[in-house]
Design a protein around this nucleic acid. Structure first.
Length: 475
RNA sequence: GGCGCGGUGGCAGAAUGGCGAUGUAGAGGACUGCAAAUCCUCGAAUGCCGGUUCGAUUCCGGCCCGUGCCUCCA
């Protein structure tokens, strides 16, 4: 079965037909690096990682591009808010460049822990000011841009000149006026958006990140960066563009208007959007208090893979309500899978070629993923195989390997740090106690070892152990 | 106010016009010095009311509830 993807453009599942099967062009909207990513943000990047893996396993070559927004993303309503980078800069008493560098590194560290493959090309907005200016100039020449009056000569995109402006979001035009944001007097139309902010006479003349331009010293609007960078690296026709579902009505709508205005033809063939993670049935947002970072999850005694597994149990187009209970379930499931895998590997250390039965299971997993990334079904297929006595262990190991490649399961292995001296001593004391049939002492030492993160398994030939993550290990 | 999405066992979450996956949690059993792990067995769910149909959890309508967007947002 061919790869099927839900295309936001037509609100339906469609067969994926690439422009060039040897090089699928995939662009993903990246983070604004003014703060840590929260686990809701990270869910979207896991979804994009699954998409990338699925495209590759379906036999296509691809180029995966992601931007880093390090300038131009405004804080507040309308278009007169302050740049988020500038606010973070004041908050932390660092230059905006240092802020961007710090949070970009933190973001990729989170991604590594979550098994998210790094995009082939990562591009920063601040490295592409010239490309954005070129694009704005083209839009001016084609009549899509205008300079606003007043004392703030920003350059705006004129949405009235782009008749298809509302098609993507499917928002009726009449609703613009009823939005809760006060109209910007400079705009000809409430939906118009800034391409270039000019500092002279603006509310924030001391913005540190600024560049010379044909319109005066200033900085680019948020939306133009994605259009400029995507087309620089992928050309003016892109296969897939994805991001969070919240980007449909504004950011992606504006990207389409700019890019298609500039290029004069359809820009992106497939738009894919990941749904939100909810926390206590509410949206988790960077601009709200108390968002959960991956580090907080780690501090609570879970691994990044436990969180990834939780994400995989839900379909990317449905909201997922995060709770510690559901994360507990994901942890138990993932650890059980790893534990089985480790035992099987110990028994069959040499990897075998998958037999016909294993290949069939792996194909089913791939088929589930190729059906609009149905990871819950893929996991269901995996578990049925793991508990199928008819499958020999080497086949199960081959299936695990395939599932790891398709779903990014972090190698399906439990952490095996070195034993501490203390742990070795306790183990040896306990062996002695067991030989002497001193059961109370053996039980006591087992409890002590569990607190250090060692789970014991007693066998006739002696005790073995494996690592578990006790709750509150690091908290 | 407008435009959407969703309500499935304790929890998470698929699928489907006719046996409602999978995992976790729970109960019982095998095994074990006792456990753990593993395995076996079991109990447990389609928000409410109508309609279409031989048959609805699925399709249609209404209601209730939750949630998202129209503002920065993954």
């Amino acid at each position: 079965m061919p790869l099927q993807l839900f295309n936001t453009l037509h609100r339906q599942k469609e067969e994926f037909k690439p422009i060039d099967a040897k090089n699928v062009k995939l662009y993903c909207c990246g983070p604004t690096v003014y703060n840590y990513a929260h686990i809701g943000n990270l869910r979207t990047y896991v979804f994009e990682d699954l998409l990338r893996r699925t495209i590759a396993r379906a036999g296509f070559g691809l180029t995966h591009v992601m931007n880093i927004t390090d300038v131009g993303h405004l804080q507040s309503d309308a278009d007169d808010g302050e740049d988020k980078m500038a606010i973070a800069s004041q908050r932390e008493q660092k230059s905006p460049w240092d802020i961007a560098k710090f949070y970009e590194e933190a973001f990729f560290a989170d991604c590594r822990k979550l098994g998210i493959l790094k995009p082939h090309i990562v591009c920063r907005a601040t490295d592409h000011i010239a490309e954005m200016q070129t694009m704005i100039t083209t839009l001016e020449e084609k009549g899509y841009a205008y300079k606003a009056g007043g004392n703030q000569y920003n350059v705006y995109f004129d949405t009235a000149k782009f008749p298809h402006y509302r098609e993507f979001a499917r928002q009726p035009e009449a609703q613009d006026a009823q939005g809760r944001v006060d109209a910007d007097d400079n705009k000809r139309n409430p939906a118009d958006f800034v391409l270039w902010f000019t500092l002279a006479g603006s509310k924030y003349p001391n913005q540190i990140m600024k560049w010379e331009s044909p319109w005066g010293e200033g900085f680019p609007g948020w939306h133009i960066e994605c259009s400029a960078m995507a087309s620089k690296y992928l050309g003016d026709k892109i296969d897939i563009h994805c991001g969070g579902i919240d980007h449909i009505p504004v950011h992606h709508t504006n990207e389409i208007a700019q890019s298609e205005g500039c290029f004069g033809h359809q820009w992106v063939n497939y738009w894919l959007h990941g749904e939100f993670l909810l926390l206590d049935n509410d949206k988790m947002a960077k601009s709200k208090d108390g968002f959960l970072t991956l580090q907080k999850v780690l501090d609570a005694g879970y691994s990044a893979m436990h969180y990834r597994y939780l994400i995989l149990t839900a379909h990317y187009r449905g909201q997922l309500n995060f709770s510690w209970d559901s994360l507990d379930g994901a942890r138990a499931t993932y650890d059980t899978l790893c534990h089985k895998a480790d035992e099987w590997r110990a028994a069959f250390p040499v990897a075998a070629q998958p037999g016909a039965a294993a290949k069939t299971v792996i194909q089913k997993i791939d088929a589930a993923m190729q059906d609009d990334l149905n990871s819950p079904v893929a996991l269901s297929v995996l578990w049925e195989a793991m508990r199928n006595d008819a499958l020999p262990v080497p086949d199960k190991l081959a299936i695990l390997d395939g599932a790891d490649s398709a779903l990014g399961l972090g190698g399906v292995t439990l952490d095996k740090p070195e034993l501490t001296r203390e742990q070795e001593d306790y183990l040896s004391l306990r062996d002695t106690a067991r030989r002497e049939k001193n059961w109370p002492e053996a039980d006591r030492l087992r409890a002590v070892l569990l607190e250090t993160g060692l789970m014991l398994k007693d066998r006739p030939e002696g005790s073995s152990w494996y690592f578990v993550t006790p709750p509150a290990k690091k908290a």
